[in-house]
């Protein structure tokens, strides 16, 4: 079932292989106002939007990969092509050796999908009945579904609301059930499209624990899209960043941090006010006299030199931190846009 990929002389077992994938959408253009509407009926103008442009990547078994990008970058379109929802215009996709275009049904038995924005559960039924329904969809024997539900109740702590209608659950409990429902058939690959959207931090953390546990227990390969950097940072070891339909970065989280963390944030509380201005390697982010926040590019100026500028005897308190991952990702998005 798995495709053998030869990469730099190493044979790896890829469960997801995407090669030169492209997808265009034809969008009708309309000028403003009634006149524009009439004109668009008589002589419609169309624009071709290149949602995905020639992207290629492989994902190996058990990997948890963040597939991220700004809105409209093409990540959802790519995931929809990988799951058989959309037909690609060009390129090849193999998920566990199956082609989503021609083997959608076979593929559906092997993958699970959770779309944070689109609920699949019947809201008037309890999670238990929903899981039974999903079991039937995947042709699982009733006894097997029953066993699986018991296992999930214990593993994902569902006992408090397993018999409560979904419409009476909190959003967090509901999303948890959505994820669990997508696991009933033990999928080998799970696509999570913004699973933590709209959840509070505590619930988000619970969902992350669930995803981690699932990856550990069942060795499920996870492809995650999220705008929440904490999701990505806490769950994924690899990041694929898509912007304007193209992959702008495909690297490990470690490398991403290493390469982009050459800037440090120095926050200092001073005894006396200092007047510092931007100079090579130093950007003043905030200067409130006694409180100073600056960004130090350690390739150009060492932290020690930066502290010397403040006069160490004048420092009451100091905090040196890395640039938040969120900021790194935003700068990658912006770089992509400038290109």
């Amino acid at each position: 079932m798995k495709t053998k990929i030869r990469k730099k002389g190493v044979i790896s077992l890829a469960v997801i292989t995407v090669e030169h994938l492209s997808k265009n959408f034809k969008v009708k253009l309309k000028e403003k106002g009634l006149k524009g509407s009439i004109k668009s009926i008589i002589k419609p103008n169309y624009k071709i939007i290149k949602a995905v442009k020639d992207i290629s990547f492989n994902i190996e078994k058990g990997e948890m990969v963040a597939f991220i990008g700004p809105n409209g970058a093409g990540k959802s379109t790519s995931i929809k092509m990988m799951t058989g929802i959309l037909y690609p215009d060009k390129g090849e996709i193999r998920i566990l050796g199956l082609d989503p275009k021609t083997q959608r049904k076979k593929l559906a038995y092997e993958i699970g999908c959770v779309f944070g924005q689109k609920e699949q559960l019947w809201t008037h039924l309890t999670p238990y009945d929903n899981f039974k329904f999903f079991g039937a969809i995947y042709d699982l024997p009733s006894s097997h579904v029953e066993k699986k539900i018991q296992e999930f109740i214990e593993l994902f702590e569902l006992e408090d609301f397993i018999n409560t209608p979904v419409r009476n659950l909190s959003l967090g409990q509901r999303i948890r059930c959505e994820i669990v429902a997508s696991l009933i058939h033990e999928p080998k690959v799970l696509f999570l499209d913004e699973p933590t959207i709209g959840l509070d931090p505590v619930v988000k953390e619970n969902i992350r624990v669930l995803i981690k546990r699932m990856n550990k227990e069942y060795k499920t390969t996870v492809v995650l899209t999220s705008h929440d950097v904490s999701d990505i940072e806490k769950l994924c070891k690899r990041v694929i960043i898509v912007n304007k339909g193209q992959i702008v970065l495909d690297d490990s989280m470690e490398n991403l941090k290493y390469h982009y963390l050459n800037k440090k944030i120095v926050e200092a509380k001073m005894k006396e006010a200092v007047n510092l201005e931007d100079q090579e390697g130093i950007t003043i982010l905030k200067d409130k006299g006694y409180n100073l926040k600056m960004e130090v590019d350690i390739k150009k100026k060492s932290i020690a030199d930066a502290i010397k500028l403040l006069n160490p005897d004048n420092i009451v308190d100091i905090n040196i931190s890395n640039i938040p991952l969120e900021q790194i990702i935003s700068s990658i998005y912006k770089d992509g846009e400038q290109e």
Binding site: K80, T83, G84, I85, R104, K105, K106, A108, Y109, I111, C113, F115, K118, Q120, I137, Y138, D139
Partner: peptide
Amino acid sequence: GKLDAFLIQPK
């Protein structure tokens, strides 16, 4: 786009 939910099922 509500067909998505049915397209990911093996039915």
